[in-house]
Structures are given as C-alpha cells and as structure tokens.
Design a protein around this nucleic acid. Sequence first.
DNA 1: TCGTACAAGCTAGATGGTCT
DNA 2: AGACCATCTAGCTTGTACGA
Length: 604
Amino acid sequence: MAEGPKRVHDPPTGQTPGKKPEKRRSGASGRFLRKSLFQSDTDLEQGVEQKNQKVQTMWKDEEVSALVEYIALYYSPDENSFNVWPAGKNDELWGKCADAVNCYNIGNKRSGDACRNMVRRYLKEKFPTIASAEEAYGISYFGEKVSTVGQSVPSTPHVVSGHTTSARSPLLGFSPLRDADFTKLPGCILDIVSSGFSSLTPRQREQLLIHLFQKWMVEDINPRLDATFVPPQLLPLIANAMSVLRAGNKDNLIYYAARCFGEQLHGGASPRMPLDRMPFGLISHNLKFFSSDNVYTLQAPDDYKSWCQSMYTLFGNKWASMHLGPMWSYEVESEHVPVTNDSSLSLDIISQALQETFGSDTNMVSMENPLPALESAQDLNTNDDVVKSGRTIKGDPLKAKINIAGPSARTIQRMNKASDFSKGTEIQISALKFLHEAYPNGRWWLKADGTDIQEGLRESMRNEWSGDVDLGDGKLGSKYSKYLEYLKLVPNIGLNDGASSNNVKEDLKKVCSKLSIENEFLTNGHADAKKDYKNVQDMAKSTEKALFACAWNVEEFSKLLEKNVSLSQSLNNIISILDSENNYSVNIATTLTSLRQELLDYVK
DNA sequence: TCGTACAAGCTAGATGGTCT
DNA sequence: AGACCATCTAGCTTGTACGA
C-alpha cells in the first residue's frame, strides 16, 4: 500500500469535519470510563454506582453460574432425582456451595444461607431443572461459556477470549474423590467414566466428549490439531449433520468425506481424493461457501479456478450462467423496489433473464403468444415484489441464488486476461514458432484431432489435398491423380472445343456413368456403415465417441447418395433436352453453371 | 512525556453486476 | 470482453484519551 502523507493537526481542535459526537462521559467526573476486555457496559456502570456501597447484595452472573455449576456437579440425592434442586437445610452442602461461589467472588464472601436463598427464591422459580439452568448459564466444565441468559456473560477467568482452552473448571477440584489413590488406576478411571456417563447431564456428556476428543487429537494424532484448527463445536456439529442426513434419507457424507481424506493410498503417499486437483477445489470451495456467514473474503482454490477458466473459455457465458446460477442478481432491498404492474417491463425481465441464461440467440418466450410468460411474470411481481434494481446484496451465502459456488464470469474473464489464457491459437502458434526458430532444420510431425479440422482434412482452400498420408505403396498417389482429373472434368463440362451440344452431351454422359458407378459404391458403403453402426451399438462397452463416429459415417453416406440421385436426375434431364434439339441455350448455360458447382461440391 | 488503547478515516485490492 | 460502478474488507494512519 502506498503510504500517504501524515495529516498535520496541531494543536488538536477536536473539530475534524464529519467527526462523530463526543463519547459518553460519566456524570460530573467528565472522564472516560475505560472498559476492560471482559467487562460489559452494565457491569461498568454498576461498578461505579456500587463503589460507595458497603454491602454488595446483587449476585453477579459469575456467582450464580458457579452456584449452578457446583450443584450440577456434586448434588445428587438419588439416581432418579439428580435433576431436582436442593432445598432442605444441609449445612455441609450449602457451605461447599458458598466455597464454590467464592472462587469467582474475590473480595466478597457469600454464606451458605445466601446460596440456599438464591436457589430457593430465584433459580428454582426460573429454571424447572438443574440441567436447564446449566444450559442457560452456558456452564463450561472445560472451555468457554456461552450464555443465553440476558446479555453476554463474562468469560470465566481461565478462558482467554476467543480461544477455548483445555483448562478445566476450578470447581472440578472440589471432587470428594480427588485425592483417593484408587481412582488413579486406569481400570477405575475407565469404569467410572463408562458407568457414570449416563448419570451426567447432557451438557456434561457433550463437554466431556469434546474435551477428551481435543486432548486425544493433540496428544495422540497430531499436535497441530489444536483448537484453532479443530473448533470445539466440531463434534456436536458432526452429530447434528449426520442426524440431518439420516432424517433426509441421505448417505452418511461425513463418513465418506472422512474416508476420502482419512484413508491413505499406497503406503500413505496420498489420500483417496487428491488434495491438489479437481474436484477437491470445487468441493472445498462449495463447503466453505455454504458454511460461511460472509463469503466476501472467500477465494476459490487455484485448481478450481483454473478448471473454471477452462470451462468458461470453452463454453462461455452459457456455462457460467448454468454453473453458477444467478448468484446475487435480482436480490433487492425492499425500500428500493419500484413496485409496478407494467406488463411490458415484466416481459422484458423474463426475456432478459432467459437471454442471460441461454444467450442472445434464444427465443424461448414466444413473441406471438407472450401470454404465458406475461402471466408468470405478473405472478412473480405480485408474490415477491422482485424487480431488477441493478444493485446487489453480496456476502451472505444464504441470500445467494447459487447453483455451484465459484468465481463469477466477470472474475474468470479477469483471470483470463491476467494470464494469457484464451480460446484462440496464439499460444500454440507462438510455441510452434519458438520451436521452429530453435530448430530451423528439424522435421516436425503434428498430431491433431480429426474432428476438429474436418474441413481441412478434406481439402485446403487452394484445392490441395491435406488428407491421409501416403504409406509408400503409391496407391494414394494414383487415387489422388484420378481425383484431380475428375475435378478438372467438372468445371470444364461443355467448355471444350467450341462447346457444341454434342460435346456437352458427351461430357454429361461421362459424368452420368461415373455417377451410376459411384451410386453402386455409395449404396454398398451406406450398407456397410449401417452394419458397422449396428455392431457398435450392440457392443455393451462401445464408447460414445465410437458410436458418434459410426453415426456420422452413416449420415454422410446417405447424404452423398441423395445428392448422387438428384444429380443423376438433373443430368438426365439436360441430356433429354439436348436430345430433343430444342434450342434453349441460355437456360442450359445457367443450369450447367449451377450444376457444375453442385457437382464440384459433391465430388469433393 | 511516553506508551497504550481505541475510534475513525483512508486506500488498495478483490469481487460482482450492468451496460455496451 | 471491456469499461465502469458499487460494495466490502484488511491494513494502515491519524487523532484523542488516559494511565503510569
């Protein structure tokens, strides 16, 4: 970035043009309140208000949260009612509750009775079960808290904002089994964890699994699989995703995806799905696209980009329109919508949309009977109020009309421009020139796909054969000279030696006899081609390409046969006219001229 | 006086849509 | 396919406030 000159503003006046109004000041002090990283605005104001109060009576969210956490962890009168709030007088229980609360309550000491009152008068009224309070307060036994109670609950002290740590809640240290030696034996641990799992609350189970999963990933699989790469919500998300797939009667794509990347081929050389080429890029980009809240900074991977370039260059805008979909086109903000019932405008929208999708040569909306299109356009208008406004709402993938996410046609065009990528032959030509300059005396063989250069195979513009290569037996040479003779005959019909009607007749009869011989050849050829086509069709494993080639042969033979028959008829007509010795020389000359051209095309 | 924190403004760059 | 415009973000600079 270019560094701009620094703005000189000395002394500061505080009256910069467009400057926002002064920030809030607290009462008479006139000084700014500084907000700490974990402090909410209300806490701040309360803190100031409470500064001069001698006794703190209001419970902070952290204190209530700690109380709920302790009860959820250690209160369980019996197996059937572990989810019920404690209420009775139990000095030992409430005393420990107070200790737990005071972990988060530096400077103030809550008593056991205060805790009991809190549970009876507030928690019990607001939350029917301990588990619901646990959810609402976002109790986190291993990581960050996510609360749904009121405003955001400040993070617990051991959590660095934005990062989930693997630190445990300090309340886990309150366990009565903490110092018992036998619980440290693997057998006891496995037994306690597996047999006690079902007596945990759903939140405790989830958090335990996430915690163990993260620990296992880092310690046993790969130290780089930390919380930044494997977010803590991964496990619940995977479970939800599989549940959705199951409900929709779909395959377990999560499992298949894991197999694609998790199973290594050839002794760990590469995963089943290669990571550096398509379709990895397409899949990766689409998954990231639909899972993002904002796709503004999302860039397609290189392999996907270059594939898009190839497809766009070969198939153009039609491909881009069908592949990508309308994207953010026609997405409008309601206040900018000019609501209209103008049917001509509606028709224009439909035809333009069709044009953009199918190209300019499409006439999908019948102009003679535009009623169906008009009706559907009016429906669209009245139902959705969606009219093209020219502006877009970008960034939110949920508002996009995307078929397959990818770089837009415009972006692909830019990529093409930036990278000498084109549908022309400039690159190939320059490469050939470069090679020729490097080896001026070398001999070159170029192999090209025949279907791409059909016309060229038949003949060049200068009537020079550019077809099959002579294999050295001279057969092709003799065929070629016969071909040239035939070619020479056609334009000269009736032009030899004074162009008498006898000469014309003679030439025409020659051509006629050639045509009848060729008719036989073509009929046989047509039959052979049809036979070949049927054979190929019957073969179970015949490729589309082979079928296409055979069908093409059959088609060409039948075309030539048709031409042969019609030319024979024309020639016989002319001969019969000449025979009848009627003098329509002018008509015959014009007919001959057009016949010559037709014959030439046929012969070629 | 200096360092830090934060808000606001600016710019380059990327991207998508429309028009021609 | 190019020109043009709108939108958005990241990264940077600048101004201001505040505490040590």
